[in-house]
Design a protein around this nucleic acid. Structure first.
Lengths: 98, 98
DNA sequence: TTCTGACTTTCCATTATGGAAAGAGAACAG
DNA sequence: CTGTTCTCTTTCCATAATGGAAAGTCAGAA
């Protein structure tokens, strides 16, 4: 009996919403940069990424940089679509407010 | 070191965001109607309302209707401002996505 | 082989959210 | 006046989410 539109639970939480939005701006982003951007610990980012991967919204690409292995985060087409849909639902609210 | 904008924690959670948005459309709304709209129990709505009242975003007006006492929910000016600010932050993300 | 850097996973604490049930106050029935 | 009923509130509990610290993993450096 939920008369209101539901939001995507994978994307709605602040940390993941901000991450998805940030990733939508670029082709990819380094793990460490994303961690600093969100202001969370390694473990926390890693766990958020696991959820987003399970949903198929993010893909991790591991490649060496400066000798060391680094992880690059990429928003998938599916992730971009989900983000757009979520934002559209929010914009509907925006429209309501005027 | 949070480089991303923060959302209003009182308004961001789905249930309260939807409630705030719904209240922004009308002058007031009956408790029971809001409860059905959100699809939650009396106790849950009551608790969400308590948080929104603490933040000064909602005011409860008790008045009789059909003999019985009813509670009407009203979004305060402060609540409307907060909702707008929150929505604007979300629209910035929307802009990012295109 | 050992050490390091860069994540990942486990462990634990805190907080949020939700429902059921008990409470509280007002109005109605008798 | 007393007992009920209606309409929320508050309390009690259970579950899930989120976060950090610390331990674990793995590839490349030394």
């Amino acid at each position: 009996m939920t008369a209101v539109p539901q939001f995507d639970p994978v994307i709605h939480p602040p940390a993941r919403l901000q991450l998805a939005a940030a990733l939508s701006e670029v082709n990819d982003m380094e793990f460490g940069r994303a961690r600093d951007l969100l202001g969370v610990s390694d473990s926390v980012l890693s766990k958020h990424l696991a959820q987003m991967q399970d949903a198929g919204y993010v893909r991790l690409r591991k490649a060496p940089l400066g000798g060391r292995q680094r992880t690059w985060l990429v928003l998938t087409a599916q992730g971009r679509t989900a983000l757009k849909a979520h934002v559209r639902a929010l914009q509907d609210l925006a429209g309501i407010v005027g």
